[in-house]
Design a protein around this nucleic acid. Sequence first.
DNA 1: CGGAATCCTCTTCGATACTG
DNA 2: CAGTATCGAAGAGGATTCCG
Lengths: 232, 232
Amino acid sequence: MNGNFTPAGVNWPLMSRRRYRQNCALALALDVVGERWTLLLVRELLTGPKRFRDLLANLPGIGTNLLAARLKDLEQAGLIRRGTLPPPAGSAVYELTDTGSALEPSVVALAGWGARYAGSPRKGYAYRANWVAVGMKFAFRPEAARGVQETYEYHIDGEVFHVLVEGGRCEVRQAPAPQPAFRLTSDANTLLQIANGAMPLQKAIDSGALLVEGSRQAFARSLKIFRLPVQL
Amino acid sequence: MNGNFTPAGVNWPLMSRRRYRQNCALALALDVVGERWTLLLVRELLTGPKRFRDLLANLPGIGTNLLAARLKDLEQAGLIRRGTLPPPAGSAVYELTDTGSALEPSVVALAGWGARYAGSPRKGYAYRANWVAVGMKFAFRPEAARGVQETYEYHIDGEVFHVLVEGGRCEVRQAPAPQPAFRLTSDANTLLQIANGAMPLQKAIDSGALLVEGSRQAFARSLKIFRLPVQL
DNA sequence: CGGAATCCTCTTCGATACTG
DNA sequence: CAGTATCGAAGAGGATTCCG
């Protein structure tokens, strides 16, 4: 049934997107980021610029056409921009603009609410180390981070990200850190069990399921800065 | 014909509902509330229990079948429950459970982000006084509400809601207040213009577009408690 | 009044194939 | 590698009808 001639609405260019048509801040927000995959796409970009194929790999099931469409829409809406990674990489990437980054509190709040469903990892559900980042943002306690300025590096299932704590804020990037105060190595399952309180941290360390290299003091600090298990 | 939501891990046969299938708190949250209309439905219930027809009236365009389906899904997911209003009303209503109410921070955060698009009211877009409620939650400043315990009543375009400030928190209900400190009467357009700074408050009062009855002191307090215009 | 059910059309999604 | 093109399937939207 393609190639259909629009009966009456031909004059509306690109206005075929569904909108709520409500003068309400929430509805207007959802008009922009309420479609399927959009907020997950923002989640990916919250940990730094990403290439098309990286996004595709971290959004299993999206399909190339839909990803391309979302990227185009978000670019037009001013939430993301196309950029180029500094040499020697030089890859074409997508990154959040200020407007897009401003979605972080919303994403973190939603993830905080959804944490109640993340208690036990579901079979057949995908997992990426990157996705812990949003959880760490939620677990972050600014008052415990006063005066702390250091970087922690995490290796989960072979993927790497780091957290920069500085000035009472924290940033998460999907990349190795220059000089991390410690390096934590573990796997998704162990981490989830610790996060929801199903396994004591010490037990994971004793069994070798979780390894910490570097400053033990910094690691102890990090446990105060990121509250575990996550409170709902 | 709607698939039921199963909180415990369940294999994927017969799943008619789309899910992201990601072990990520954000994705799991969106599996529950990410579908079209769902968060707007939660928004409606955040100001108190509502009947089917009230919801239908405040969600123009949803259609009875879709509203019924969403209500059923949310009830099974444990976000809402069917209730009965106390006598003499006795109507069958829907209300949020604790799990559903826990979405408030997420809804408020998203509305706060969407406020940047609400600057100028759009022609042809619907408006309900009720929708100001979410905005007021965002504009609420707890530190300015310390020690204040009073109720404000707002009449917008003939609709009524009130705000209860107490213990450093605020609640918004779509109902008249017992003994409001003041009663504000205005229309949607005037309010939007004031909220985004397009019109000074005093000018609206002078022109009669905005009427305040009752305690002027309480009104002055309320302006400190709810920051206007909304900062992004 | 508060839905549930049906029918039909349109849009969006998801998967795969294809191209610069 | 970064997307387009295509097409079947699922979801959304609107109207209407029926029921208790």
